Amino acid sequence: MTILRQKVDMLTHHYPPQELYKLLKKNIISKEYVEYQFMQKSKIPTMHFQQSLPRLPIPKLDLTCERYLAAQRPLLIDEAYNKTQYNVNQFKSNVGRQLQDMLKNYDKQNKHTSYISEFWFDSYLRDRKPIPINYNPVLVMHKDERPEYNDQLLRTANLIISSLRFYKSLHAGILEPEVFHLNQRKVIPRSLGQFAVTYLHHYHETDKDRLFNNPQGKHITVQYKGHFYAFRVLSDENDILPPDKILARLKFILEENIPKCEFPIGVLTTMERNKWATIRHELADNGNEHSLKLIDSALFNVCLDKEILGDDPYAIIRNFLHSDGENRWFDKSFSLQLSKDGQAAVNFEHAWGDGVAILRYVQDIYKDSREKPFVHPNTKPYDDDIANVIRLGTEFL
C-alpha cells in the first residue's frame, strides 16, 4: 500500500486515532501536515462513548398524563379543565394503554436509536411552512478582538479553513468527544450521533422533504450579490487546499465586477415547501439540474453580504436570521454568513439535528479561527486560475 493510499484510507474510512499517531511516529505523514489538516487530535476516538450512552426511556403513561394536565391547569377555567381531566382519564384507561404498548414494542425493535428519532424527523420534514424563521435558527459569533482579522475576505477564509479542519477531524475520528462537566470530579459524555449528518442538504419534495448527503463532497458554494459560485476546497486525496488558494478564490468572487443578480434563486428557499418543490423540479427539467446538484452536494454554503451591520444586535439578527432571502440558501444544513464589516454567523437547517451539535461546531471554529488563523493580513493570494471558480448564476434559466 502506498503512503498516499494509507493517508486516503485513514481520512475516509474512520480509522481509530491511534493510526494517525502511528503514521506520525513513522514519519509517513509530517507534523506540519497534521497541524494544518486537523483541528483536534484526540487520543480518545470521537465516538468512543457512543455505545455506552443510555437510551432515552419511554415515560410512564400515568406520568405523561399528569404532566399534560399540569400544563393545562393554568390555561383553562374550571369547567374546561374538568372536561379535559375527564377526557385524559378516559384516554389513560382505554386507547392510551394500547398506544403505550405499541410504543414500547416499536422501541424494542429499534434499539439502534431513540424511540423519538423517526417522529422527530417526520415532524420537521412533513411540515409545509417555509423553513426560514419557522425552523432555521442562527448563531452569531463575536468579532475577533484584532480588527485586522475582521476583514471580510480574511475572516471568511479562516472560518472556511477551520470548518474544513473540524470536518476532517470529525471524519478521522480524532475530534474530541463531547462531555458535560457536572463538577470537578464528574463528567457526562454527550451523544455525537448528529455530528455524522452535519454536512447535509435539505431537499424539498411534495408533502415530505428528504435529507441528502454527499460523503464524497470536495467543494463548497459561495453566494455573493445573489449569484452562486462553487469551488473545490479539498484535493482528490481529501487534503484541505493551501490557505493562499482558498484566499485567492474568495478574492476573485468578492472582486468580480458584476451587477447584482437579477433573478436570485436563493429567495425560492423561503417559499412554502410544496410550491418550492414544484418550482425546483421545473428548474431541474429546464436545464439547471447540474447547478442544483452542485449546490446540493457542496460541503456547506457561504453567504458573503455587502451590508455593513456595525454592532446593532437587531440589524445583525435580522440580516443573519432571514434578510431578504436573495443571498441565502436556507436548505443547506448550515451556511457561514459574513457581512462586509466582518460580522459572522451560522444559519442552520433544523431537520437534521438540534442546537447542541451546531453549537459545538460554531464554538470550535470560532476558537480555532482566532487562535490558529492560517490566513493573515500579509498573506498573498495564490496566483490562481479563475477557471477553478465556477459561477452558477448564468446557468439558471
Rank of each mutant, 00 (worst) to 15 (best):
M1E: 10
L4G: 07
T12F: 13
H13P: 07
H14L: 15
Y15R: 13
E19N: 13
L23H: 03
L23G: 03
K25N: 14
K31P: 06
P45Y: 09
Q51E: 15
S52G: 10
L56P: 08
C65A: 13
A71Y: 12
L75D: 12
Q85N: 15
N87Q: 13
V88D: 03
N89E: 15
N89F: 12
Q90E: 15
K92G: 11
S93A: 13
S93R: 12
N94I: 05
V95K: 13
K104G: 14
Q109I: 08
S117Y: 09
E118I: 10
D122N: 13
D122W: 07
L125G: 01
K129T: 11
P130S: 06
P132T: 02
P132H: 03
I133E: 07
N134R: 05
N134V: 00
P137M: 04
R146A: 07
E148K: 03
D151M: 06
L153Q: 09
L164M: 10
L164V: 02
R165Q: 09
K168I: 11
K168E: 09
L170S: 01
G173H: 01
E176F: 09
Q184S: 13
K186N: 07
K186G: 00
G193Q: 06
A196H: 09
T198N: 02
Y199L: 03
H204V: 10
T206R: 10
R210D: 04
R210N: 06
I220P: 00
T221W: 00
Q223E: 09
Y224W: 10
G226D: 00
Y229I: 05
F231N: 01
L234W: 00
L234P: 07
D236G: 07
E237Q: 11
E237I: 00
P242G: 06
K245Q: 15
A248E: 10
K251I: 00
E255I: 04
C261V: 04
C261L: 08
V267E: 03
E272C: 02
N274T: 03
A277V: 02
I279P: 01
H281F: 06
A284T: 01
N286T: 13
G287A: 09
H290E: 14
K293V: 05
S297T: 15
N301S: 13
S333C: 11
L336C: 07
Q337Y: 05
K340N: 13
D341C: 11
D341N: 08
G353R: 07
K372T: 04
H376Q: 01
N388P: 11
V389F: 08
R391Y: 05
L392S: 01
T394Y: 15
E395W: 12
F396T: 07
